[in-house]
């Protein structure tokens, strides 16, 4: 199961498992936001390369207008995936919102 929604502070909240069957849902949600900035991953259990593609496409769009995503509270496993992908060079990744 995967859920994506806006949190109380306007942050994007991702929960569950972001796999290839859910990437379209995540991309559509992010594409509908003019300038998302924070993505809270505290309850995101799993991400595959399809989910990484969603984040990368969104980041490329935002960078063109001077914005960018900040990825907060990823699990240790997801942090490792980000590091092995080089995402720690192209996203700001933090432990707290």
């Amino acid at each position: 199961m995967f859920e994506i929604r806006l949190g109380d502070k306007g942050e994007v909240v991702c929960e569950g498992r972001l796999d290839a069957s859910q990437a379209g849902k995540a991309q559509a949600f992010l594409d509908a936001l003019a300038a998302p900035d924070v993505v809270d991953m505290a309850r995101l259990e799993y991400i595959s390369s399809a989910g990484l593609g969603v984040l990368l496409r969104t980041q490329k769009r935002l960078l063109q207008s001077g914005g960018g995503l900040r990825l907060v509270n990823p699990s240790r496993h997801i942090r490792d995936i980000f590091r092995y992908s080089g995402f720690d060079r192209i996203f700001q990744i933090d432990d707290g919102a």
Binding site: S49, G53, G86, R89
Partner: peptide, 15 residues
């Protein structure tokens, strides 16, 4: 090449 900046990265191949 994971050292490329975001502008030069494309989704795909990472898996």
């Amino acid at each position: 090449d994971i050292s490329l900046p975001a502008s030069a990265r494309e989704p795909g191949g990472l898996g």
